[in-house]
Amino acid sequence: MKYKGFFVLIITLFMSSQLFAYEGGDVSNGGTVSGKAIFKGAAPARAAIDVTKDKEVCAATEHLSDLLIVSADNAIKNVIVSIVDIEKGKKIEAPAANPELDQNGCVFIPHVIAITAGTTIDILNSDAVTHNVHTYPEENTAVNKAQPSSLKRISIETEFGEEDPMKVACDYHGWMSSWVGIFEHPYFAVTGDDGTFTIDNIPAGAYEVKAWQEELGELVKTVAVKAGETTTENFEFEK
């Protein structure tokens, strides 16, 4: 079971390679793009989540809304930055273990992740209530499975890349959501608390780099990547 995701990834890559044809190989002297996602204006406060169901479990700890997390110095968290439609680059490496989304206290932790197509995601249920895992992909097959507290782990497979990140939500608890960016190439990153991102080992050339945030939308910039050098590109969002 440990290597199941790996095999699925390889097989799916092989199958989808017929259509997408991302060529993964050795990149010598690749460039890097790094930068920061910045919020223009005063950093908005995070509202508390309104728990309408299963209060005993879900309202036990207060959670703040994770729709838009801006730090004191205007750094935006959970921004997915990726290169648009890159066709040749470094090899895709399967992750050591399946990435996890944990339903904990009736919120998804982490709120945003990004993976390559073919990776299997594990959804955990650490709560004492039933959640349901409902994905809303535009390209991939949707999944809607009930996950009682007894079922600790459910696996979701992905096959195709998604143009926009895929929402994973729980219908039982309407405020619960998470986002998964699925790409058919390995050039992506998710900003952390400090709002920074780094994408490395890119073959030299001009590319479109897209930054996406669930509330603020997306920004696309053209970036010239030079061999062996780091290009800095910041994304300034405003509401």
Partner: peptide, 11 residues
């Protein structure tokens, strides 16, 4: 999902 893909009813 096999009868009404996209439905909110889980399996």
């Amino acid at each position: 999902q096999t009868i009404q893909p996209g439905t909110k009813m889980p399996t």
